[in-house]
Amino acid sequence: MSLYILCTVLFAVGLYCLLVKKNLVKKIIGLGIMEYAINLFFILTGYRTAAEAPILDRELAITNFVDPLPQALILTSIVIGLAVTALMVAIAVRLYEKYRTFDINEIRRLRG
């Protein structure tokens, strides 16, 4: 319960960073923090006390596993997050090349 709330606080930090900061790299960092919080939240919901990692063993017949479904969903989401981060970095680099700044207010002013 308290872990869920801490995870939400982490998300809120990322959200605040995304809303308030004017620097494009800071905005990318805020989105990254939000992504971490969401990934962690999924895995927290799938956890069961005193359960094992979802990998079968040759000798021991374990039946008490944590929920493997959120793990399978998040595994693909992590790699997508990396590709999306790379896309945002590429766009930010383009903007820097054109306007020589990462500040979005400055970019808006220069564009006229």
């Binding site: 790379a86 590429a90 680099v93």
Partner: peptide, 14 residues
């Protein structure tokens, strides 16, 4: 991912 890295590496960075 490696082609992303190459594209970011060979671009003439500002």
């Amino acid at each position: 991912l490696f082609s992303i890295f190459i594209a970011l590496a060979i671009i003439r960075m500002p």
